[in-house]
Design a protein around this nucleic acid. Structure first.
Ligand code: SF4
Ligand code: SF4
Lengths: 137, 137
DNA sequence: TACATATTCCACCCTGAGGTAGGAATTATG
DNA sequence: CATAATTCCTACCTCAGGGTGGAATATGTA
């Protein structure tokens, strides 16, 4: 019951960048600040860049900056780019086709949590996260 | 946001066995009925046997049967045997040490779901699942 | 030019999922 | 009893994918 390491990295990086405002964040800076392997984060940022979430500037004092309004970047979008959505809205026991009328024995115990998480991932954007004013970073 | 394939297999098999009562279930039968790779399930059942959840009978008409009272086999126990518990009660962003007083920016959005799932896994046993009277199997 | 940064390519290790090949125990049956 | 059939069990092997690092390249600034 966790996101992939890569999704964790992506969300942490984007939340941090969002909290920095419009300034450029270099991969080196992010890597040290967030304790994420430099090389791996470099590729991850390139992926996010290709997906259009962030844009890059090369050369000295270069780095990445967030391209789109924070409210338009949902957690779902980030996870989708990085990992795909196969692991969301999934039956807990892996049954292929089922619904409320023909439930598996776990349905009553799993449905509410599954729907809650899916809704959270779908509705929460970087804007909401930033508004929570955590002291972390 | 899913269990591992192996945990899914284990839970499906145990729920099915529980629904069969005290009869012996062979790996071959379980494999065909639940559409789980035969050899893989064989090893998985042996693991569950070594952990004391089920006991085996070899030879013709042999198979496995559940050893303990259904109410003492919680989902948590099954997952623990198969996968360990590293992925439960985990910070969504993978921060190492944090609490309600020094939360990460995701805390307000993640905490309730995490606690809900952890509580469900901890409290629901095979007895409760069987009582739900699903028509599946 | 010298340096900093993104970007790309490749090789590696680990783990989860699954397969192959047998061996050991028990029972059905001639 | 003897043999075959069935079943659990164990030890290896394969394969794909996630995560990681090294090295080289492209692109910009001072
Ligand atoms: S019946 Fe419900 S809980 Fe069970 S596999 Fe289907 S959607 Fe998931
Ligand atoms: S602050 Fe809360 S949500 Fe964030 S990493 Fe810690 S426990 Fe998880």
């Amino acid at each position: 019951m966790r996101l992939s390491t890569t999704s964790e990295y992506a969300i942490r990086s984007l939340v941090y960048m969002a909290s920095c405002g419009p300034e450029l964040c270099s991969v080196k800076h992010l890597s040290e600040k967030l304790d994420i392997p430099y090389k791996y984060l470099g590729r991850l940022m390139a992926t996010l860049g290709n997906a259009g979430l962030i844009s890059s500037t090369r050369g000295k004092n270069g780095g990445y900056t967030i391209d789109k309004p924070l409210s338009t970047i949902r957690l779902l979008d980030i996870v989708q780019i990085v990992d795909g959505l196969d692991n969301f809205d999934r039956c807990l026991l892996g049954f292929p086709e089922c619904n409320d009328d023909d439930p598996c024995p776990m349905h009553d115990f799993w449905k509410e949590h599954n729907e809650g998480i899916t809704e959270m991932i779908t509705n929460v954007s970087l804007a909401e996260i930033l508004a929570s004013k955590s002291k972390k970073f």
